[in-house]
Design a protein around this nucleic acid. Sequence first.
DNA 1: TTGTAAGCGTTATCAG
DNA 2: CTGATAACGCTTACAA
Lengths: 375, 375
Amino acid sequence: MSRRSISTMADVARACGVSIQTVSAVVNDRPGISDETRLRVRAAMSELDYQPNQQARTLRGYKNPMVGVIIPSITNPYFPELVRGIEDVARRSGHGLFLCNDDYDDAKAREYFSFIRANNASGLIASPGLVARSVDGEIERQIHAFARRNVPVVFFGEQRPELPVTSIVVDAREATLDAARHLLELGHRRIGMIAPPVGLHVARERVRDVTEAFAALGHPLDSELIVAGGFDIEAGRSGAAVFMALPQMPTAILASNDLAAMGAIAALQEGGLLVPRDVSVLGFDDIPFAKVFQPSITTVAQPIYELGEAAMTAILDPAVGDPTDMPGRSIWLKAELVVRQSTGPCRERPATKRKTARSQNAPREERHDHEDHET
Amino acid sequence: MSRRSISTMADVARACGVSIQTVSAVVNDRPGISDETRLRVRAAMSELDYQPNQQARTLRGYKNPMVGVIIPSITNPYFPELVRGIEDVARRSGHGLFLCNDDYDDAKAREYFSFIRANNASGLIASPGLVARSVDGEIERQIHAFARRNVPVVFFGEQRPELPVTSIVVDAREATLDAARHLLELGHRRIGMIAPPVGLHVARERVRDVTEAFAALGHPLDSELIVAGGFDIEAGRSGAAVFMALPQMPTAILASNDLAAMGAIAALQEGGLLVPRDVSVLGFDDIPFAKVFQPSITTVAQPIYELGEAAMTAILDPAVGDPTDMPGRSIWLKAELVVRQSTGPCRERPATKRKTARSQNAPREERHDHEDHET
DNA sequence: TTGTAAGCGTTATCAG
DNA sequence: CTGATAACGCTTACAA
């Protein structure tokens, strides 16, 4: 019934009186078919609404033109942008995208690994922290299974030289240095940080970049002013609350990311403080809402869309699939500081006094070109 | 090479000295296998890192446990939530999700339709406007092709009784009435609306709901105050600009959706007006950022996540796959008003004067349970 | 319980 | 260009 309602190559062949392999040749644009037959076959194809069966193809030995993408959650505003970057490249090369949210849950991640493998996907893109979390080595085993089948695996964030994966990494050191310089030039000296959640690689990296930057500029951060946090709005709120309870509040706050920055700003304003008049707040990532938020957020911007593009490009790059080249390859992109409204001069000592609570729309800084290079 | 590095059922069978179909029986939990062999087979499976080949399965007659989801763009903050609703239900039933962004582009939509069909997906979920846009009936043809294969198709928004699809529709009339009443009770009489983009079904519906609501309450909208708009931040900005240029500004603005509301608020505040002190702004949809924005946005909330759940549930519901039941089925969910900070009393006539520019965090209204019923 | 055989739709390899 | 044949990995009768 349902079986017979779908037309196959054989149906097309029968309909226009040619052989099955002629149809196959037409479908795959192989040479050796006269223009006349070619046209006849095409006509029959659309007549019968023929659709090549991807399963049969893949079974015959092709890879499924489909990439698996494992992210924590698409509702985290960082990820839609990343996924778009991936998909736009994928579509151009005829690949579909298999979306997997694992909620930082190992069980879900594994399930999806299996699923992606069972479907013979031609690549796997996974976001940071996935391997790090894996306690029993199951994820590592899966990754090796992919490698054995020449299926390229790309990670964001962590470099794992011992695994057959390509890493897409963001170098935020310069941009973080720019951010530190920016705050210092605005006159801030008592600077707090709302830390990312412990355990994530990107978290350690971010804290390290920040402390190194301030140290390098001769104004090391007061470690008392680094408070525990997280990557969500709530973390920003509670971080700000901690600072507000201090006898002497910081005049500038580095939030773990833009969401935390928003939470911090909200809490500060509810506490009667204006940003950036009374306190400056700086975020990380540059999620799309960072420039819409009121005040718009000064942030160490990750090239999120470009990260996605780079990841998918790496999947398609045959060199990546070549196992001899696989271990430990890394592709670097650079973060950069984007100055917006949430940072302003420190009012505490009579530096430059300002009249307006909210600066006018500062023209958005131009991004530098990202320089990609490989290690 | 790469072929041989992956183990098949035959390998497993050989490894533990049983037949291929015994392995198949174990994999599929079929009865009639002794516990002892079952264990031996399972051991061999994990030993060899065996992974059933989904292509072979699907080819043999099964449906691919995969749903295609076609949305305009995942970077539109409405959709991540929807996709999560879909995925969470999908995962529980062992289905994967094939994500397709069509950017309201017919060509991309078609491409993805083919892709989904070629992959024998077990369902297709598409967002509103897709069919409406299709000029040459190609999309309709595709939909019939799905129906012929008993593949359920679910649409958001539009009901298409003539097509073999299930529709998930939001009834926003009551909630819109609540919103109108809310504004009127706050004393607003000169009320403007930033209209959604023309052409979309949801747009006509939204305008209709709003005009009907105010008419029903005895205060019909002044049609002069309905300005052309769109569904993005820019539309909100320009809509607000139009209103600000008027000799007499509206005291309350209904934006086409939350993004437009944010744009409008930003423009108003840049123009020196405070929300809600000087102007109230009301949005639609309740995207996640609506409650984070400063001020948080009063909005006619769609049960976005639940819409996703309902859609995937409909895909899995065998009744949906039954062609006799297919034409014109609809599942209704209700929108509801969520009052937050962006709406406040009209100050124009000496109604209730307020001191603070920004009201305190109003506790978020409880949502009613959504009542689903079918037509 | 297990083995034998056939088939899903496609591609590949031949000889005609 | 066509026809015959085999193979991809799995499922499902049916027979042993």
